[in-house]
């Protein structure tokens, strides 16, 4: 059973352990600055090019980024301090979106891990369900949105269902794979020391499968954001996706761009938070892997 993750060649992500040694503070600061400059110049250049290009072209479909930022600030982030600077519109837009996103994702995560453990522990069950799982994960989730709209109507239940159904597959398949491929010697060790039942599940099987489970959770979080947007574009009157499609239909292009940029920032933010949490929880895995390779 192959696994849907962003499979990458192994190896550590950020090399260069930094040859800092006994250099003084100014030299160190300089090194950090030049390092940052070497990484960041392109993104600055691209943003500047975007600004200049759009100003020259004056194409109403492509407002300059400064305008986009200004609009973002106006419609969402110019609220009172008591609301963390969020405007009422921001709260109206963000709240339903976040409820859909995290509701669907949490449902998928809980269901995927639980089912995955059950299926992964039994070979027979796994073989019986294999074709169904392969089929289920192959359905592009948006194709089911019209169906969910008909049976659940527009609204949160439809969106949560869409997201949960769409993102459960990476979690489920990765959990099955992780639980099934626990090292045989680790299981034998557990048998020798009479670690059975819930103890075995909690202390041996789940930690051993955790790296794969987390990989699945991360893929599904990115996917959940996509499905949140698409389900709001099609079947919603509230949320960030609805804002996007409304401003497109009334041809308020800067507002639409503000939505796109906001979603991009949210994507980066969620991804970054997840990576941080994962690093904390799975520090043992990175350490052990580094020595293996």
């Amino acid at each position: 059973m192959s696994v849907l993750t962003s499979e990458r060649p192994s190896g550590e992500r950020h090399g260069e352990p930094g040859k800092r040694g006994r250099r003084g503070a100014p030299a160190l600061a300089l090194a950090i600055l030049t390092g940052a400059a070497a990484r960041l110049w392109l993104i600055v250049l691209l943003t500047a090019g975007w600004e200049v290009g759009t100003r020259i072209a004056k194409d109403p479909f492509f407002p300059p980024p400064s305008t986009i930022l200004r609009v973002m600030h106006e419609i969402w982030f110019s609220g009172p301090v008591s609301q963390l600077l969020l405007t009422d519109k921001a709260i109206d837009d963000f709240r339903p979106s976040f409820i859909n996103l995290f509701g669907g994702w949490s449902l998928a995560a809980a269901g995927g891990v639980l089912l995955g453990i059950v299926i992964g522990r039994s070979r027979a069950v796994g073989e019986i369900l294999d074709p169904l799982l392969q089929f289920g994960r192959s359905i592009p989730p948006p194709t089911l949105i019209p169906f969910f709209i008909v049976i659940l109507d527009l609204g949160t239940p439809m969106q949560v269902t869409t997201i949960a159904f769409g993102v459960v597959w990476p979690v489920l398949l990765n959990t099955i794979d992780g639980v099934r491929t626990v090292d045989s010697l680790q299981l034998q060790t557990a048998r020798v020391f009479d670690i059975t039942g819930a103890q075995r599940l909690r202390r041996i099987i789940l930690p051993a499968a955790a790296p794969k489970i987390f990989a699945g959770l991360r893929v599904s979080l990115g996917f959940a954001l996509i499905l949140m947007v698409i389900s709001e574009l099609i079947g919603s009157t509230t949320g960030i996706g609805a804002h996007l499609i409304n401003s497109q239909q009334s041809l308020e292009l800067p507002e639409m761009w503000a939505g796109i940029v906001l979603l991009g920032l949210l994507g980066c933010l969620f991804n970054a938070i997840f990576v941080l949490v994962e690093r904390r929880l799975l520090s043992w895995h990175r350490g052990a892997r580094r020595l293996d390779s």
Partner: peptide, 9 residues
């Protein structure tokens, strides 16, 4: 991480 579907409109 930018959701590509945000670009649909």
């Amino acid at each position: 991480p930018i959701p590509s579907v945000a670009l649909i409109p």
